[in-house]
Amino acid sequence: MKLRELRAERGVTQDQVADAVQVSKSLIAAFETNRLAPQQDTATALDAFFGTGDEIQKLSTEARKNRKPGPSWFRPWRDVEETAVILRYFQATLIPGLLQTEAYARAIFASTGMLSDDEVAERVANRLERQSAILDRADRPTFAFIIDAAALRCGPPEIAKDQLLHLADTSARSNILVHVVPDSAGLHPGRNGSFALANMDTGSAVGLLDDFYEGRVIAEPMRVTGLERTWQTIAGFALPCDQSRDLISKLVNDYDDPATKLAQVQP
């Protein structure tokens, strides 16, 4: 990508470019090393910033033609995410990938202990690129996220608080619904694992099941129907959007409560 050359010519830093086009520094670094190609809106913003007409847009379009970031097993689901009209995600233990902050995603990948610093950086960049590509789609699909309350309390305080603030901000978008399953729900089908569902404009639906090593796309009608039934059951335990947002806000406020801070450091 010509981005590094342009940046050197203009004498600007990665941070300055990132701020100008409203993406993270990690994404700018990934663009410069050809690990990722900017999406159309980001490429347009970069052309405007550098005054390069549509040069970066053309380069990014060509680079994206035969390449999707992320592991090979995930690419079919990326195709689904880019065309679905309704996307639903249930997460039992973590904040969904599409709603993660950069710091939270980095902590998740680093916690495996099996990735080098460069591999962690690349995976974080891939995740941020996916967020930009899917959440900011021009045709505005409907997103619904159900998150178990336990996932909201996962992570060190300095990361978790910012993650919850980001979650609350994102849930304010009109096409993004965030529901929380409270602790009072007890045992429910979602305890069996996380999954996602996508409805296409053709009327068909597909699912994605998480695994320890990788996920798999589910297209068999009977299995998709099973995921649909599980989703509906979990949704019955979840709080409405406004109450979910209130719970998230309460957890944010708890991080500023001295009593809560003291409890967090107790053995």
Rank of each mutant, 00 (worst) to 15 (best):
A205C: 13
D201T: 11
V252I: 13
Y213K: 00
V178G: 00
D254Y: 05
G215C: 08
T225M: 00
N199I: 12
S194T: 11
R173Q: 10
E214R: 05
P221C: 10
V206K: 08
N253W: 01
N253G: 03
W231E: 06
S249Y: 02
T202N: 14
T202F: 04
A238M: 01
V206P: 04
L208D: 02
S244P: 01
I234G: 08
F195V: 13
D201S: 11
H179V: 12
S244A: 04
D201N: 11
A172D: 10
T233R: 10
G215Y: 08
V217D: 04
S174D: 12
G186K: 06
G236L: 09
V252K: 00
I248N: 01
A172F: 06
V181S: 07
G207Y: 08
A235F: 05
S204W: 05
L208F: 10
V206C: 09
A238H: 01
S184A: 15
T225N: 00
T225Q: 01
D210S: 10
S174I: 09
L197S: 06
H188Y: 09
S184H: 12
N253V: 02
V217I: 14
D256W: 05
F195C: 07
D183F: 15
W231K: 03
L247K: 04
A172N: 05
E220R: 15
L227I: 12
D211M: 04
V181Q: 04
